[in-house]
Computed example of a mutant assay.
Amino acid sequence: MEQTDRLAAESRSPEPGTVALVTGANSGIGFAVARQLLEHGVTVWIGSRDLANGERAASDLGPAAHAVQLDVTDPSSVAAAAATVGRLDILVNNAGVNPGGEDITATSLEQLRAAYETNVFGLIGVTQGFLPALRRSTHPRIVNVSSGTGSLAWNSGPNPQFDWERVQGGGLAYRSSKTAVNAVTLLTAQALGSAFKVNALAPGLRRTNLVAGMTVGGDPTEAATGVVRLALLPDDGPTGALWSWDGTRAPW
């Protein structure tokens, strides 16, 4: 895998006709990613579990945005979406859930299953479903929206992403599912080779529906910029890495 500590500030200019799919794109980081990709001239499919929500988002974003019903936990929905989208150059696996629970003493198996069903199995299923289209692209890119709280290195000691002393052992379902996303990202990059660019992004805490009710967190647009940088990597760009939203390499 290519090694670098910081991503270049400038992204590759996408070729005319470049097509992206962003899952969970009707709000939050996904919506901001879609908007920024559109600004780069990319045609964007808004993947949304509720089609009406996706259609409203696409209408807000403009004529180059299109809605597609996509429940990442439903294989038939993934297959139907792949057939609808057709050509694809960029896949942003953004859809995610936080079903709650705290540490191992206060997290149910149901909460763990819910987290993994969407955040891990859904991500894998969507990637597999759209791989045939991505293989036909001349610049295939996959970006998995992960979390700094899934970094084992950062979970093992003081880190810049969260209050380590306060959250030790907490968030078992969500955080461990994002650790799994990091592993899936690395192994996918290894399996697909250097023609693909497969990376994960730690977006930082953002004001989205995922943390509804919280008053802290930054603007989703800032995190989206990091996603788009990875989605538009040049052909000599890195693959198989976890990146912080600010373009610096993050530890696994």
Rank of each mutant, 00 (worst) to 15 (best):
M1Q: 13
R6Q: 14
L7M: 09
L7Y: 14
A9P: 08
S27N: 12
G28P: 01
G28R: 06
F31T: 08
F31D: 07
A34M: 02
Q36K: 00
E39C: 02
R49N: 09
N53V: 10
G62C: 13
A65N: 11
H66G: 11
V68G: 12
L70C: 03
L70I: 07
D71M: 08
T73P: 11
D74E: 09
S76V: 15
S77V: 06
A80G: 00
V85G: 02
R87N: 04
L88M: 07
D89T: 14
L91Y: 02
L91W: 07
N94I: 04
V97G: 04
E102T: 12
E102D: 15
A114V: 08
A115F: 06
Y116R: 11
V120P: 13
F121N: 12
G122F: 03
G125P: 09
Q128N: 08
G129R: 10
R136Q: 15
S137Q: 00
P140R: 10
I142L: 11
I142H: 12
V143M: 06
S151K: 02
W154N: 00
S156M: 13
G157S: 01
P158G: 06
N159H: 08
P160N: 04
R166T: 13
Q168N: 05
L172V: 06
S176D: 13
K178E: 12
V181D: 02
L186K: 15
L187V: 14
A191V: 10
L192S: 09
F196M: 02
V198T: 13
N199I: 13
L201D: 10
L201S: 12
A202Y: 14
P203N: 06
R206A: 05
R207L: 05
A212H: 03
G213M: 12
G213I: 04
D219Q: 00
T221S: 01
G226A: 02
V228D: 02
L230V: 04
S244W: 09
R249M: 04
A250D: 01
